[in-house]
Amino acid sequence: MKRLTYLLLSSLFLVTAAGCSKDDATPAGPREYQVEYRISSTTAPLSDYLSYDNESGGTTTLSNVPLPATYRFKRTMKQGDHLSLLASLDGGTAASEITAAILLDGREVKKETGRGADAQAVPVYVIGQ
């Protein structure tokens, strides 16, 4: 629950911040994107918790996901819409790490690596950022 709260608050902050800026170079109209999430770890065989924004804009939550994992879908979004992903390891060691990446139309737009016993990677991307 703590992880989900952190993810939702982070997403809300970034969406609010993105809504305050103006970037005339980025079209504001809706557009279909090919979304891809990639989760991997060189130190663990599975992620104990995974949560991501799905094709309908809702949240998909999974437990004990074998790594590496990839999720792909198409989603229509406009400037200010966001994508977020939370991947974690539980009960690892100080050397444990997990990496999560968000790709749009085959291009990596955000990537994070979490390290430590309870490693978390939480990339969030706002369209137009």
Rank of each mutant, 00 (worst) to 15 (best):
L50H: 03
N64F: 13
Y71I: 14
A25Q: 00
A94G: 05
A17G: 04
S84G: 00
I102V: 07
Y71S: 14
S21K: 14
L85M: 11
Y125A: 07
T26L: 06
L83M: 05
D48G: 13
G91M: 00
T61V: 14
E36M: 12
Y37L: 08
C20K: 14
S56F: 06
D53M: 15
F73W: 03
P66S: 12
D23W: 02
V65Y: 02
D81M: 08
K110P: 01
R115T: 14
V109Q: 02
M77H: 07
Y71H: 11
A17C: 02
G114P: 01
S63L: 12
T93D: 00
D81G: 05
S47D: 02
T99N: 05
E55N: 14
K22E: 00
A69P: 02
G106H: 01
C20A: 12
G114C: 03
R115M: 08
T16W: 11
G29H: 05
N64S: 11
D81W: 02
G91Y: 01
Y52V: 02
T76R: 14
Y125I: 06
L89P: 05
S88T: 05
P68K: 08
G114W: 05
L86V: 13
K111A: 15
S41N: 04
G91W: 06
T59L: 15
I102G: 08
P68I: 13
T59W: 09
R107L: 10
S40E: 10
T26K: 09
Y49D: 03
D90M: 10
S47I: 07
G92M: 04
L83T: 00
K22V: 10
R72P: 03
A100I: 07
E32V: 06
R31M: 11
V124D: 08
L14D: 06
L83G: 04
T42E: 13
P45S: 15
C20S: 08
Y49R: 06
T16C: 09
P68Q: 04
E97A: 15
Q120R: 12
G80P: 00
T16Q: 10
E112L: 14
K22R: 13
Y125H: 15
S96L: 06
M77W: 04
D118L: 14
K22I: 00
T59F: 06
Y71R: 09
K22H: 13
Y37K: 08
G114R: 04
S21F: 11
Y37Q: 07
Q34T: 11
Q79D: 05
Y49V: 06
G57T: 01
V126W: 03
L50N: 01
R107T: 15
Y52C: 09
I102M: 09
L103S: 12
A17T: 03
